[in-house]
């Protein structure tokens, strides 16, 4: 019984991360800087949505969980709910999160536990997301003066949300704190190759590390949910 509840907690946390980031990436559609990125960002969004559906279904009904929970009940990281900003902000968010997700799923895929099957499939998708983010970090960081400055600002602006990823989540089956050193090393190396310095400053959310996992979110998140849930909530009990 306790194990199941813990699995639900972890499934919601990981599922909400994927659901919310997928939604943010979906906002890019029709607005990307080049057609190839319309395809790439949609592809990543679809992978994440697929992961979200599996994870939320482990914890209950996917649509009830996505559309009928209020802001305080969502368990995603504050990082993934951050607005898209410019392309550099989107890429910085992708770099930070996909590196984390890849380290996490790589570890879960080789272990035993409720997430092994999902992780084995997702790790392949996430490797692609990480490669995409790393390549764009290099292009923007080591592109023009303008792109270098935008990438630098984006990496700095999102830095304070990265500490939350390594806070413990009950039932996830691995110690997330162990991922922090390899994450710092990998992100630092990518930024270095892009001619960027690793940002300085605290890596905790504005409230405290782990806030999103406790249902404490940033202001833009409520508006995102209002848009996402509006139609579903307007027709209680309807099927689509």
């Amino acid at each position: 019984m306790t194990t199941t509840a813990h699995t639900d907690t972890a499934a919601l946390a990981l599922g909400d991360d994927a659901l919310v980031l997928s939604h943010r990436l979906g906002e890019w559609m029709g607005h990307a800087p080049v057609l190839e990125e319309e395809v790439a960002l949609a592809n990543i969004a679809l992978d994440l949505l697929g992961q979200a559906r599996i994870l939320l279904s482990m914890a209950g009904d996917e649509d009830e969980l996505a559309y009928l929970r209020e802001e305080r009940a969502f368990r995603n990281l504050q990082l993934v709910e951050q607005p898209n900003g410019d392309f550099a902000h989107t890429i910085a968010r992708q770099l930070y999160f996909s590196t984390y997700q890849h380290l996490l799923y790589d570890r879960l895929a080789t272990g035993v536990g409720p997430f092994t099957g999902l992780a084995a499939k997702a790790v392949k998708e996430v490797a692609y997301h990480r490669d995409h983010a790393e390549q764009w970090t290099r292009r923007l960081g080591d592109g023009t003066e303008v792109s270098h400055e935008r990438m630098r600002q984006a990496c700095a602006a999102l830095w304070r949300f990265t500490g939350e990823m390594f806070q413990p989540v009950e039932g996830v089956g691995t110690d997330l704190a162990d991922l922090e050193a390899p994450w710092l090393e990998s992100v630092g190396a990518v930024l270095g190759r892009a001619g960027l310095e690793t940002p300085e400053g605290p890596r905790a959310g504005a409230w405290r590390a782990g806030a999103g996992r406790q249902g404490l979110h940033t202001e833009p998140f409520g508006r995102m949910l209002a848009e996402m849930q509006h139609l579903h909530r307007s027709h209680p009990g309807a099927s689509w």
């Binding site: 659901l19 939604h23 979906g26 906002e27 559609m29 679809l46 949505l49 697929g50 979200a52 559906r53 939320l56 996917e62 649509d63 996505a66 559309y67 848009e227 996402m228 509006h230 139609l231 579903h232 027709h235 309807a238 099927s239 689509w240």
Partner: peptide, 11 residues
């Protein structure tokens, strides 16, 4: 896309 009423339809 951002208002699709179910996750299946959104995908």
């Amino acid at each position: 896309i951002t208002r699709a009423p179910s996750l299946r339809r959104k995908a």
